[in-house]
């Protein structure tokens, strides 16, 4: 499976990419936690422009502010300073109704499938919530069943085997695939995938990445990977953003950034990736 992703890697035409309409744009987006002496700048005036059908990776080590940025983009936490533009219009999520509307266009897959489910509610309700969010509340039960079955079969799961089950009865890989089934139902404009494969085994990992790519081609959505895995970033993304201490230190196409890195930090990140046929350099760790 890993090979499939590698062989699918075709260098995107940068000029064509630049012409695509923007879906999410940030202007000096800043997040500050705390006041006075305990003030921490998690994200420091970052600018970005994500385009339609683009696959972006935001790479950085733990504590570099990538998850904070992702939460700001999702509208789960407020932005201290700066503006976010959604489809070239300034984002407005001041009320619950507007937030709901925004979330129809932007969704997420989280890192840990075991904590991303409410263990007290059944799997059905998770999928039904998606149908409801997309305005399918009044659909007939048959129609809903059909939609859920379709979503499950997209991620190689059988809805009939999952119905009436609780999340803890599933394996980690199944849970993560169910998360993608959720995205399939919602078909958002943007998907933020926060370390979607770090908690699942290598085999499921390839399957999940494959499904996300397939989904992107079908729905035409933009995928933003939040990851510390620069190898993954290279294989899947068109554009890579390297983040260090709340700032983007390097931005460019995956080839440019990984094959000829400019920033010292990027070089370190690349040298930290273990390689099978070489001795692993642990000096920077």
């Amino acid at each position: 499976m890993g090979d499939i992703i590698k062989s699918d890697k075709i260098a995107v035409d940068r000029a064509e990419l630049e012409k695509r309409p923007s879906v999410l744009r940030g202007d000096k987006v800043t997040k500050v936690f705390g006041y006075g002496n305990s003030k921490t700048v998690a994200v420091n005036a970052v600018n970005f422009n994500f385009r339609e059908r683009e696959v972006i990776s935001i790479v950085g080590e733990s504590g570099s502010g990538k998850t904070t940025l992702a939460k700001m983009l999702l509208g789960l936490i407020g932005v201290t300073e700066g503006d976010v533009y959604f489809k070239d219009a300034k984002r407005d999520i001041s009320s619950h109704r507007k937030k709901k509307e925004y979330w129809r266009g932007i969704q997420a897959v989280f890192q840990d499938p075991f904590s991303a489910f409410n263990i007290f509610s059944k799997i059905d309700s998770l999928l039904l919530d998606c149908i409801n969010l997309m305005g399918g509340k009044k659909f007939s039960p048959e129609k809903k069943y059909e939609m859920m079955s379709e979503a499950c079969s997209f991620v190689n799961l059988k809805y009939d085997e999952l119905t009436n089950k609780y999340p803890f009865e599933l394996s980690g890989g199944q849970m993560q695939r169910l998360m993608i089934a959720r995205i399939f139902l919602l078909k958002p404009k943007i998907l933020i995938a926060d370390e979607p494969t770090s908690m699942v085994d290598a085999c499921s990992r390839a399957t999940i990445l494959d499904m996300l790519m397939k989904l992107r081609d079908e729905v035409g959505m933009t995928i933003i990977f939040i990851t510390h895995d620069i190898g993954l970033a290279y294989y899947v993304s068109d554009t890579v953003y390297i983040m260090e201490q709340g700032k983007f230190v390097e931005v460019g196409s995956a080839e440019d950034v990984i094959i000829s890195p400019q920033a010292e930090y990027t070089r370190r990140l690349i040298s930290d990736v273990p390689k099978i046929h070489e001795e692993w350099d642990l000096s920077t760790v």
Binding site: L76, W103, A108, F110, S115, A116, F117, N118, L126, L133
Partner: peptide, 14 residues
């Protein structure tokens, strides 16, 4: 926790 974030993203009220 992520399940609360997910619930928010599913458009549930507070």
């Amino acid at each position: 926790r992520d399940h609360v974030n997910l619930s928010k993203l599913s458009g549930h009220s507070m």
